[in-house]
Design a protein around this nucleic acid. Sequence first.
DNA 1: CGTCGTGTTGAGCCGTATCAAATTCCGTGG
DNA 2: CCACGGAATTTGATACGGCTCAACACGACG
Lengths: 243, 243
Amino acid sequence: MRQISCEHCPLRRKSLFRAFEDDELAFMEGFKAGELTVDRGSHLMIEGAPSPQIFTVLEGMGLRYKTLENGRRQVINFLLPGDLVGLQAGLLGEMKHSVQATSEMRLCVFNRSDLWALYRKQPSLAYDVTWIAAAEEHFLGETVATLGQRDATQRVAWALLKIYSRLSDLGIGQGPRVPMPYRQQDLADALGLSLVHTNKTLAKLRSRKLAEWNDGELHISDVEKLADLAMTDTEEPARRPLL
Amino acid sequence: MRQISCEHCPLRRKSLFRAFEDDELAFMEGFKAGELTVDRGSHLMIEGAPSPQIFTVLEGMGLRYKTLENGRRQVINFLLPGDLVGLQAGLLGEMKHSVQATSEMRLCVFNRSDLWALYRKQPSLAYDVTWIAAAEEHFLGETVATLGQRDATQRVAWALLKIYSRLSDLGIGQGPRVPMPYRQQDLADALGLSLVHTNKTLAKLRSRKLAEWNDGELHISDVEKLADLAMTDTEEPARRPLL
DNA sequence: CGTCGTGTTGAGCCGTATCAAATTCCGTGG
DNA sequence: CCACGGAATTTGATACGGCTCAACACGACG
């Protein structure tokens, strides 16, 4: 696959993302250092390693996770197209968690060392970067509330819903069906539940005809009912920046 | 109490924070819109309300929390001197959680509408803002891992340790003693535990002589042993920016 | 001197973890 | 094309950590 210019980036065309001004676009063309394609299962970043690069996901899905001293794994977030990866390493010096592809992925590559130029020359893009960091912070706040205050059923419903709507907003998948290239163990590790209990909870949602997930596909017929169960309001997707 | 200039800000003098360049300092003097003092118990921000201002904590402590539809409360983080408050509202449009003072607090006030000028005129400060957002994101990632993978004892140990070291790094408190103006209910809501179980867990730590918390003061004699229990590494505090 | 907020302690129960094993699904090599 | 092995999913049985309910202690305050 040939490398694509930012101008014709298929992601950017989506109305979910704010449009670039001409000078922003020009800058980004130079900022973009290349493209990277990785196989399912490979690691983009490893906990503790300093990463000289940051990425934007173009295609495919993955996850960010952290392993504790006792060997347990916490999945911090699922990685979808449009997501910025490695900003923490870019700013704080080293990566605090690992990033793994769970399907084949294509990514846009930027050099961390160019980030400072972005701040000097393109304040509007700098503002966007901060916006993205703040949005991620907000999302993690919701996650904390989920792990702290929701029971197993609500957690699973919440997570499936989140993934479903994030993908739908991107125009990925068709109708009530979106791709979901994860294992049940990944979901369990994201929600702080055991694999067994996650499995049983999924079975319950399936029998209640709220959500069905198999063969790497997630099917949600009645979003409202599931959102009700998850105790979450289905907010409109805000137009957001894309790096 | 008279208002203080950034140049003589007692917080900024601490070696924990990076020093300002002259032009940064000059800009901040203008950026600072005023000071605010609030009583214990009062709210700085309410969930869902758009806030025209952002703050930096100068003195006192508080907490950020979110209430779910079922009435349960999740404390997202404890607010300490040096913390930036309301960045989310500043960037995303509205506040996603509430902020309450748990002791008397003094805060530095900035106008959200001036933030854009900061990005245009002071890229180094803009970079700092993003750094702060990324650091907060990192912290919330750790919190997610704690709620997801640690049991009650480890959670409490982790939280006490966090507060203790954050305050110690600021030079607040003396020796093994730091102020901790919270209720047990606040800690319980932060960790996703019931009040009763939190109380019993605190009692256990007390009897094991690992941590003692009463009368608004936290006493930790052996940091290493507590860190061991919490399965967390005691990292050196990195020099950080202060807005 | 009652009331209210906070902390403390005990009893019993429930949600979820853990252990164990069967089943399905797939990629690989014969 | 089939046999095999390993990974992922499913299901059942049992154990336990943490929740809920309930009562009491204590100090601050009107």
